[in-house]
Every structure is written in C-alpha cells, then in structure tokens.
Design a protein around this nucleic acid. Structure first.
Length: 476
DNA sequence: CAAGCGGGCCGTCACTGCAA
DNA sequence: TTGCAGTGACGGCCCGCTTG
C-alpha cells in the first residue's frame, strides 16, 4: 500500500514532543523541588502544556483507533494514518529541542533543591518506554526503535522521604494540578514515577474521551481497565515513546512498572458494561497490527505463547505475504487462523449490522413515503369527486336553464300568437304559420331581459287557439 | 431475591468462492 | 493446490428485564 501525499496544513503546530517533555519536566521539577517554589514559576504554563499534550495524545489515539480501517484500505483512514505518521515525524524532529528545554527545567530544579537546607541525596531512576511500531504497517519503521533506558539523576531532599508531602505544606505542589500532584506523590513513594505519570495521563484520557464522547464504549475501557494499560500505552505512547526515550527526564522501565501497577486498584474499574468493554478492547487489540520492533510491549493475545512470531506473521499476512506460514507449526497456524477469523467475524458482524441498519432506515423511509403518497392519493380522489359533483350540477343546471328558456320562449311566442288570433280569428291558419318563425325576440316585461331562443320549426306544437291563450297567460 | 427468558456479543467451526 | 476472506451456524457468556 502506497501512502498518498497529503496536506499537512491541518497538523498541530506545537509538536507533541515539546508538550510531552514539558509535562515530564514539570513532574521532575516537582519531584526535585520538594518544598521549594522557585522551580514552579512556570507551573501554570506547564499545566497548560500538559492539557495540550493530552489533547495531542487524544488525537493520536483517535488516529490510531482508525488505523485498522487503514489496513483495510479505507482511504479516509489512510489519510489519518498519514497524518499520524507526520505527527510522529514532527515528534522525532523536535525531540531534541524539547529535551533541551526539559533539561533546563530539570537543572533549575536541581539548583533550586540544592539550596535546600536539608541534606540531599541523588536518586537514580530510569524509564524505558517501549517503542511502539507504527500501527500502519506501511509506516516508516525507522521511527520504531528499541526502548533505551534513560537514567536521570534527580536531586531529592533527603529529609523528605515523600518529596511532595501534601498540598498544604508545599506551595509548589499546591500549584500543581491535582492529577500531577497525585502522580508525583505516588512516584516519590515508589520511584515508579513514569508509571504513575502514565496512569495519570490515562485517567485524563478517560476524562477527555468522556467529555469528547468519542466512542466511549471502547475508550473508557482503555483508561479504566488495568488489563488494557499496555494496549493504551500502545495507542498513546507511540509518540510518547520517541519523546521520552530520547528525553533526559525519565524514570524506571515503564513496561515493568506498568506490570507492577497491574494490581493497582481502580475504584471505578467495574462498570456494568465492563465485560463488554473489555471484550471490545480485546477486539481492537486483536485487530491492531502488533508492533514488530518492540520486545517490551505485551500483547493481549491469549494463549499466544509466541507473540513475536505471531505478530510478524500477522504483519506479513496483512501485507499479503503467505510464505511465512510454511515455517509455522500446526498450532501456530491454528492460532493465526483463529485470530484472523476472529477479526473477520467482527468485520462480518459489523458489516451485517450496518446492512440491517440500512435496511431498517430504508424501510422506515419507504413507509413514510408510502403514507405520504396515500394521503396525496386521497386528496386527489376527493378533488376528483368534488369536480364530478360540480360537473353533474352544472349539467343539471344547464338543462334546467334550457328547459326554462324553452318554456319561456314557447310561452311568449304563443302569447303573441294568441293576441294575433284574437284579432284575426278567421286567419287562424295563418297564425299557425307565423308561429313557426325561426327566431322570436320577446320581452314579456319591460324590466326583464330579452331572451333569444332558437325554436325548431319542426318541433312546434300544434296548438289550438285556446291552448295558446292558456299558455300565454301562464307565461305572463 | 432468585430463576427464567430474551437479546447482544463473541469465539469457533465449517464451508464456499476467489486468487496466486 | 494452497491460502485467505467472507459468512452462516452453533454454543457460551453476560446483561437487563420480568415474574413468582
């Protein structure tokens, strides 16, 4: 799969390395400062950077969560993966500057604590952030490096067995955000600073995801379930790894501390849907390509027993290679087949569900359209019925008018004939002839309009003089 | 409050079709 | 021929709701 070119104008201008290292520097400064406040002059800024870094991590998580689709050829997800790659490249390029800045802060912290009245000792702690391979199988694997343990010497006031005692006695600590404060406190007690820092980030990630409502069913489980911390680290520390591994501000092996931290009680870890969330996480874990260059990231694959081999095989499988299976045992083939079938079943169900939802939407839409058409049909039928009724009425009225006109005409004409008959009784036959005029124009009364009636000569009744007079009287 | 029931999700198996 | 993706079927597990 060839990564397309992309426009990086939308990428964050502040590199994640700067942010992460600034946060890390804040923690180290907090540890080193003890009750000194001098090193926290920029604490507010660091807190802000910490939030920014969490947002950047969130973006990374969001991008990582869609890498599975990228592996499936989704173009949109491919663009996301490209952006993620760009993020990592920026991270790598800016790590040195960030490390220098962090080093300055760290040195300041040491200087500040050196002025402390109490004798001090040096605590050496190291962190080994497991390098995580880029989730996109086609990403530049040069970014994936073996985790390098970085040892940093942090001067801690010897009189304070717990560096940050509490917020009431330490101004500096009081100005640290609560999450960092807790992390620092725990770190001071256990020297597992990176682990607590990491858990703090995870807690904040949970908060961020809950606020952002980004796929809460899966993301919440990431940050609440201790069994998924390694996976969360996979998602979040792909950038953290590069930054912190090159940073002089690190503490003990993160992987080891994470493992040590596994039994750490999490009060809200058991939610009603925890099992389903864990299952969903398992599914995501199974579907995310396993890093190839790391030896410290423990996958969630159950009963794998050979994570390295299966991971390589899966990567090769995803890239279309088939030859690797020849060297596998039957059990390995089975495990790989089960894994792939598991993923395929997920995709199939997802597809099926989408299809069913689409069918339901289509059904609802068609029902609505059908109801609309039925209403329209009823309205048209009503209009047609009303129109037909009006036509019948019109026809009836027309006929009635014709009949009335015919009667009127006939009456008027006969009245004229009667008058003429009175005058010329003996000319009765002539009168009858004169009735048969084609057109008669009659005005029975002065205020009535003249009525013009066509009279068919052939249908003129043959009436007598008395009948004509009676009709004329009636018409008058 | 426990048992029953239905729904949803998941892992696995078996099978088919396709492509190298 | 072989490997793989896709999918139906099956069983198990969990959760929420109902019922006696």
């Amino acid at each position: 799969m060839t990564l397309p070119s992309y426009d990086d104008s939308n990428l964050p201008t502040t590199t994640m390395a700067e942010e992460v290292n600034a946060v890390n520097a804040a923690i180290v400064a907090a540890v080193a400062a003890g009750d000194s406040t001098a090193s926290f002059t920029t604490q507010h800024h660091l807190d802000a950077l910490r939030i920014d870094s969490l947002e950047a991590i969130e973006n990374l998580v969001s991008a990582s969560a869609r890498l599975k689709r990228a592996a499936e050829g989704d173009e949109e997800a491919i663009e996301d993966s490209v952006k993620l790659r760009k993020l990592q490249e920026d991270l790598n390029n800016n790590t040195n500057a960030a490390a220098q800045a962090s080093g300055i802060i760290s040195n300041n912290s040491s200087l500040n604590t050196s002025t402390h009245n109490s004798p001090s000792h040096t605590t050496s702690v190291e962190v080994q952030i497991p390098a995580v391979a880029s989730e996109d199988t086609n990403m530049d694997t040069s970014l994936v490096e073996e985790a390098t343990p970085i040892v940093v010497e942090t001067t801690i006031a010897e009189s304070t067995s717990v560096v940050v005692k509490d917020t009431t006695t330490t101004d500096a600590a009081a100005r640290v955000s609560p999450a960092i404060h807790e992390a620092i406190t725990a770190a001071a007690k256990t020297n597992h600073l990176s682990a607590t820092f990491h858990s703090s980030i995870m807690a904040d990630l949970e908060r961020i995801h809950q606020v952002a409502k980004m796929d809460p069913a899966q993301m919440a489980s990431f940050s609440t379930n201790p069994n998924n911390q390694a996976t969360l680290e996979q998602l979040t520390s792909s950038a953290l790894a590069s930054a912190l591994a090159q940073s002089p501000l690190s503490v003990s092996t993160l992987q080891n501390t994470l493992q040590l931290q596994q039994p750490t009680p999490q009060p809200e870890a058991t939610t009603p849907t925890q099992q389903q969330q864990d299952a969903a996480v398992q599914g995501i874990i199974a579907s995310i390509p396993v890093p190839t260059a790391t030896t410290t990231v423990a996958t969630e694959e159950p009963d794998a027993g050979n994570d390295s081999a299966s991971s390589q095989d899966e990567d090769e499988t995803l890239s279309g290679k088939r030859t690797s299976s020849r060297n596998m045992t039957n059990d390995e083939r089975r495990q790989r087949r089960l894994l792939r079938n598991r993923v395929a079943a997920k995709e199939c169900r997802k597809k099926k569900k989408a299809y069913v939802n689409e069918l339901q939407d289509t059904c609802a839409r068609l029902q609505e359209e059908n109801a609309r058409l039925l209403r329209e049909n009823e309205e048209l039928n009503a209009k047609i019925t009303l129109g037909a009724m009006r036509i019948d009425e019109n026809v009836r009225l027309i006929k009635e008018v014709e009949e009335l006109n015919a009667k009127l005409t006939l009456g008027v004409m006969t009245a004229g004939v009667a008058a003429h008959a009175h005058a010329h009784v003996h000319e009765h036959d002539h009168v009858q002839d004169s009735v048969g005029v084609s057109v008669a124009e009659v005005s029975p009364k002065e205020d009535q309009p003249a009525v013009v009636v066509a009279v068919d000569e052939t249908q003129q009744p043959q009436v007598g003089a008395q009948e004509v007079e009676a009709i004329a009287t009636e018409a008058a």
